[in-house]
């Protein structure tokens, strides 16, 4: 198992004839993702590699059984494209685009809720279930199939951390990039709920940063008596308050959003928080063995 994405997803690519769309088709197919259709209004009948192009999501779904969309269109066109995919019945829509107005994300999230679809992103590297499929541009060699669920606010940081896990022999069930924006298609809380219900996931690694309130969800989850082990890395202890650190949500606006406050809150809830990138793997291992001891104690 894994969350949201596995070998059964039949993927359509919106904006498939653009540079990113075309590159994605090649890269994702190489990884084993089942890409069945492309959508590019006005270009129906064309082909990108072996993938047929349709003029609408509905036409693509009817012809190919596609049930998952990834959107590669300019920011001004993302909302329109993603709503089309949601309302045509796609169960998962991935939006990697950054620079999306937050009101568009708010509308997107409301539509996903109303239609029972999941959205990953925006401002996200996408999602990968190692050994099964990937929806995004993450460097494939960094990943290995396994039982750690990873949730990340930052793309590049998730590549770095997953490479470290893979080198340490700790594979991943699914790695989800929830994105750097304040409103998220899938929040940390929702991702934690999915990982909690996934039998293949034994522990969760959360990669966060200063600003926002996402980390409070992680602490809430970790405090549950039935929680799976949770480890975390929070970056930005050198970030000054009041300044946006690249991501729209990475801004310390109040004391609760500072690095120290987040780490203290998470630790008191039972999250194993790494002191930095260099001890992230050991921290996750400690969380896992602590979880195993707790399970043995409960059994005994």
């Amino acid at each position: 198992m894994s969350i949201l994405l596995d070998r059964t997803n039949r993927v359509l690519v919106q904006g498939v004839t653009g540079q990113m769309g075309t590159y994605f088709v090649e890269d994702a197919c190489k990884y084993g993702t089942t890409v069945v259709a492309g959508v590019s209004p006005g270009r129906d009948g064309a082909k990108v590699g072996d993938v047929p192009v349709f003029g609408s999501v509905r036409a693509a779904r009817e012809a190919t059984g596609a049930d998952t969309a990834i959107v590669f269109v300019p920011p001004a066109a993302v909302l329109g494209g993603a709503l089309e995919a949601i309302e045509a019945g796609c169960r998962l829509v991935v939006v990697t685009a950054d620079e999306l107005p937050v009101l568009d994300t708010i509308e997107l999230k409301a539509a996903a809720r109303a239609n029972g679809a999941a959205v990953v992103g925006p401002n996200s590297p996408g999602i990968i279930s190692p050994g099964k499929a990937k929806l995004g541009f993450m460097p494939s060699f960094c990943y290995m199939q396994g039982n750690v669920g990873v949730i990340s606010r930052s793309g590049s940081l998730s590549y770095e951390c997953c490479k470290r896990l893979t080198l340490a022999g700790m594979g991943q069930s699914t790695v989800i990039g929830i994105g750097g924006d304040p409103v998220k298609g899938t929040t940390a809380a929702e991702a934690l709920g999915l990982f909690h219900d996934d039998p293949e996931t034994a522990a969760v690694l959360y990669l966060g940063e200063i600003g926002g309130s996402e980390e409070s969800f992680v602490a809430e989850y970790a405090a549950r008596p039935d929680a799976k082990p949770v480890a975390a890395l929070i970056v930005g202890h050198t970030a000054p308050p009041g300044r946006k650190m690249g991501h729209a949500a990475a801004l310390i606006g109040s004391k609760a959003e500072s690095h120290a406050a987040k780490v203290a809150m998470m630790r008191s809830a039972g999250v194993h928080v790494a002191s930095g990138l260099s001890d992230m793997v050991e921290t996750l291992q400690a969380a896992l063995s602590h979880g195993m001891r707790a399970a043995q104690d409960a059994a005994a």
Binding site: E209, T238, M245, G246
Partner: peptide, 27 residues
């Protein structure tokens, strides 16, 4: 990438150095 930029800033400080900036060129 914002996250990796902050991770590198933090590591510089943890190593006894002082970061001069956050500069994310990925966009």
């Amino acid at each position: 990438g914002a996250g990796m930029t902050m991770a590198a800033m933090d590591m510089i400080a943890d190593c006894g150095g002082r970061p001069a900036c956050f500069l994310d060129c990925s966009p």
